[in-house]
């Protein structure tokens, strides 16, 4: 059993990987560092206190006093030049010019400015005697699952599956080709299918560790849970890993140099880093782009992972994205086998 070529080839793959400290960092350390940094930077603390300026002039003190009553605002009276500078550089969200009418000067494309205008107008109007006809009550919700980190962790998981699939397979294949090791293997009775399968098998072993590390970290530090079943997450990650291993095989099938394969990898991965909704929702891209974006394997994988981890979807509801992921893997693998350069 231990001397079966598939076992020996897989062991060789794994040894070459874990004896390379850089590879360990990029596969295990980097996604965790990224999750930690982004999780801290975008932690949900709301917009906080918004700074608004009141232009120095007649009645400035009264207006500033009124604005100070708004719970989300702090107001400062500034001279004209200083006020314009701070508004332009975003240090104040809104400039209020006292008088009749009261003028709000702000950049309407900035969310914070529009928020500041609404809050300022509310207290200004109430100070002049406006009464609210309807009774309202606020109920505040901060639930795990709706935070940025909840969105981010499944995306990082998908991105990591893509990166380690492409690099893990593509880089090793091309390295073996440039070192003439592939040709040396061809001079033995080794079966080609065993060689290719060994990549898949070693990917599956490391996949388990990768997923455990990132999901475990998210749960431990940010309390990111998995609402759906762990079996579903396992199934999707295995499918994703196989699919990207196929894509990696395709990318590496002809390249003769490390430089060539690196270029191809970046060509394949860069669009998905940006378009596939790892760091922000792909809904932000124009409608015309959407069919293309949704057809990308990383988009489909991220969608499926988020559906299970955040919404608790079952696998049976995820036919479309899982179909896309599978199709990419199968087509890549079949094409790669046809055009693979064995020496």
């Amino acid at each position: 059993m231990r001397d079966h070529p598939l076992v020996q080839l897989t062991l060789a793959r794994m040894r070459e990987f874990y004896r390379e400290p850089e590879a360990i960092f990029w596969v295990f350390g980097f996604p965790i560092v990224l999750a930690f940094a982004l999780g801290i930077a975008f932690r949900n603390r709301g917009p906080g206190e918004l700074r608004v300026a009141v232009l120095r002039g007649a009645g400035d003190g009264a207006v500033a006093a009124v604005l100070a009553r708004a719970p989300g605002l702090t107001a400062a009276v500034l001279d004209s030049g200083e006020a314009r500078l701070q508004l332009r550089t975003g240090r104040v969200a809104l400039l209020v010019v006292p008088g009749d009418p009261v003028v709000y000067r702000y950049d309407s494309t900035r969310t914070e400015s529009r928020l500041a205008r609404l809050e300022a107008d509310e207290v200004v109007q109430r100070a002049r005697g406006r009464a609210d006809p309807a009774r309202v009550a606020d109920q505040r919700v901060t639930e795990p699952g709706s935070r940025y980190i909840d969105f981010l962790i499944p995306g990082l998981l998908g991105m990591n599956l893509m990166g380690s699939g492409l690099w893990g397979v593509g880089f090793s294949v091309v390295q073996a080709r440039t070192k003439k090791l592939l040709k040396r293997f061809m001079a033995t009775p080794m079966r080609r299918s065993h060689y290719l399968l060994s990549f898949i098998l070693s990917r599956l072993v490391f996949l388990f560790l990768e997923v455990a590390a990132l999901v475990g970290f998210g749960w431990w530090v940010f309390h990111v849970g998995v609402r759906g079943s762990f079996t579903a997450v396992a199934f999707i990650t295995v499918l994703g890993a196989l699919s990207f291993a196929g894509l990696g095989m395709l990318v590496a099938s002809r390249a003769r140099t490390i430089e060539a394969v690196s270029g191809l990898m970046n060509l394949v991965m860069l669009p998905m880093w940006i378009l596939s909704g790892t760091f922000f929702s792909y809904a932000r891209f124009p409608d015309a782009l959407q069919p293309f974006v949704r057809a990308l394997p990383l988009t489909a994988l991220n969608d499926a992972l988020r559906a299970v981890m955040i919404d608790g979807s079952r696998l049976s509801e995820l036919g479309a994205p899982l179909g896309i992921v599978t199709a990419w893997g199968v087509v890549s693998f079949v094409v790669a086998l046809q055009i693979f350069r064995w020496r």
Binding site: P5, Q8, L9, A12, R15, R19, K180, L181, R184
Partner: peptide, 21 residues
Amino acid sequence: DTQLADKLTVEETVRLFRSFY
């Protein structure tokens, strides 16, 4: 001009080739 894998030991390399026969 074959370069065998640098990060495998002598024994592991021989065992790998041995498994093909």
